[in-house]
Design a binder for these strands. Sequence first.
DNA 1: AGTTAAACGAGACGGTACGTCACGTCTTGAA
DNA 2: TTCAAGACGTGACGTACCGTCTCGTTTAACT
Lengths: 197, 197, 197, 197
Amino acid sequence: MPAANSQPRRARSGNRRDEAARLAVLHAADDLLVERGFGNLTVEAIARRAGVAKQTIYRWWPSKVEILLDTLIEDTEKRLPMLTERTTAESIRGYLLGFARFLTGDPAGKILLALIAEAQHDPGTAESLHKRYLGPRRDQERDMLVRAIDAGEVSPRLDPDATIDALVGPIVYRALTGSSIPSGLVDTLVADLLLPR
Amino acid sequence: MPAANSQPRRARSGNRRDEAARLAVLHAADDLLVERGFGNLTVEAIARRAGVAKQTIYRWWPSKVEILLDTLIEDTEKRLPMLTERTTAESIRGYLLGFARFLTGDPAGKILLALIAEAQHDPGTAESLHKRYLGPRRDQERDMLVRAIDAGEVSPRLDPDATIDALVGPIVYRALTGSSIPSGLVDTLVADLLLPR
Amino acid sequence: MPAANSQPRRARSGNRRDEAARLAVLHAADDLLVERGFGNLTVEAIARRAGVAKQTIYRWWPSKVEILLDTLIEDTEKRLPMLTERTTAESIRGYLLGFARFLTGDPAGKILLALIAEAQHDPGTAESLHKRYLGPRRDQERDMLVRAIDAGEVSPRLDPDATIDALVGPIVYRALTGSSIPSGLVDTLVADLLLPR
Amino acid sequence: MPAANSQPRRARSGNRRDEAARLAVLHAADDLLVERGFGNLTVEAIARRAGVAKQTIYRWWPSKVEILLDTLIEDTEKRLPMLTERTTAESIRGYLLGFARFLTGDPAGKILLALIAEAQHDPGTAESLHKRYLGPRRDQERDMLVRAIDAGEVSPRLDPDATIDALVGPIVYRALTGSSIPSGLVDTLVADLLLPR
DNA sequence: AGTTAAACGAGACGGTACGTCACGTCTTGAA
DNA sequence: TTCAAGACGTGACGTACCGTCTCGTTTAACT
């Protein structure tokens, strides 16, 4: 067994999309958002930090928002799993606590907040955010809730979507206003809104 | 022969601050936000629209965010009055419905949403927004709620601030995500979170 | 007899240089120069127009200037023949008129003007242009003139190279400045500069 | 008490055009053209070298060609004076020698050659060059020649414009091809083309 | 009544980032 | 080995706004 790969360096892409460049961009955007904030997040800075040409970014992403969405989607899948099994009030409480931790403690949570914010400034962002993130996620959450209702585990007074907004809204709002999210808040929301009176 | 003002023009101020210019800036900012969105709201565009020199803006406002805050504060006082008299579950319900209408229907509501958004991108905005708007307003809301609790009109399970977030959060969240706010949502929030089980 | 060459297409070369590709590049460059001007002549446009990969161009030509030189040389040989027989004042006059027509009327004349121009901007172009075109051509012209002098047909007051510049310079200069070249100009140049006083 | 003005610094423009910036741009363009050649002359490099913002250049000049034209016109007036008095064959000879020296020895001469070149690549340049430089200059030269003809000092066989092209063309052509311009060439052109046979 | 000082419109200035274009180099996979 | 295809790092393009800075004018308040 001789030598083998003396200088690995970078694989240099050639004809195909360069996966290393893709990841470098996603990580650079994530890092810069956390370090410098969205207001200082520029495409040029991402390119600089990622060691990538600006054109490489524009070739694959129509805007920095889509970069963040890509990161957000990948990270959410890894770090904020949906409930797939039997759903109870208790497991929903666990999901909401996980979501609160995600929003306030995880870098990806900052991305979500930044995108919700940017969606207020730019209709294109709003559309992408709904189509690629909020919509699909909401579909899974609604499913989760409906399964619990059908099983008789919970009995909300509102339709499923309004119920989810009533549960998630306070968590998001406190995150947006920089407040912490005490577990007692989540407990009471679940108790008051989901359980029979 | 008196003749009198051939060209009235504008009553050029001279030594004192020009109130007409101040109002022109506030209205220009408001109009542009509604027409073009925050993303297209620039100081240069405000100056252009207001017929004012850029320097006149920078002389009186440190940033466009403060312009919007000025407008927001004035408009909120006019169009979203606080409860000053006896507070009941019913009057809180009315206040929340008014707040929902303000957020989704009033141009000033768009300003508040834009500022909450911008606060995610820029710490200075966050500080100003809390100090000049969210903080004072929250003080009044807390007062309002405490008066109702003391009078035995409502009995929330959470401390006052968390209670208000639980009531207001879903409304803000639906406004941020572009959903309408059905009155049934407000009714149920009040019933489930404020009234005794 | 079945099938047989279903798609003749292009006789894709495989191992050897593809002559069709070479010609496609030369013609594309020529056409684009005439249609769009040198300022809009890019390697990418040539490749696009020729239906050829960019790398195929870079494999065979160090720069777009060399492409144009190849075209220019081929076209000059075809369309601007040198005098090979006996040379007289009259035949030199004919050569100069042909040169004037070439410069102002022939697409290849535009190439020569473009290359003389580009040589002012880039030393590499200047070197190539002299080595591959102007130098050899000047050698033939000098020969032509010297033969006429030796035969007593003409008697210029200047050395051969300066004489040729004095004859050719006005023609090139008028072409460069977009003027036409009246035959009277050529006649007078020959009469005043070549014939005895 | 003499002294005064402790820190002159830069006058900082304010409302009016900044003359220092204008001159810095003209000189930077001139210097860069001579040092690096037209091919390496970019607006960004001019701005960098002049210590000026790119926008300041675009505010006043539509292209780098116009910058060079400004420099060329100013320098030509200073360093290549027209004949204003009585014109003779001898004074025309002097003018042509001065022109030859200007073209080959003066930095501004390089600018003229570069602009003649660029005019081949871009029609806008051609138009500007003619309107702002070649045209007016030619008017003066024609005047000069006609005065000499009317005074009986010279008797060209061609119309004035063609005569000037016949005199100037060889000089420009040799400059374009990088040759020197021996004074004998000018002498012979004047003798053969302007003096009676 | 004459002087002073602030506010105003206008807009030039040095900057940063935008999104696009073409450069010349590289790699893949088919012929 | 050549070719079509096309991704890549590089760097300039011309534009939009940023926030700062005079300039010359206007006018209220203070000598």
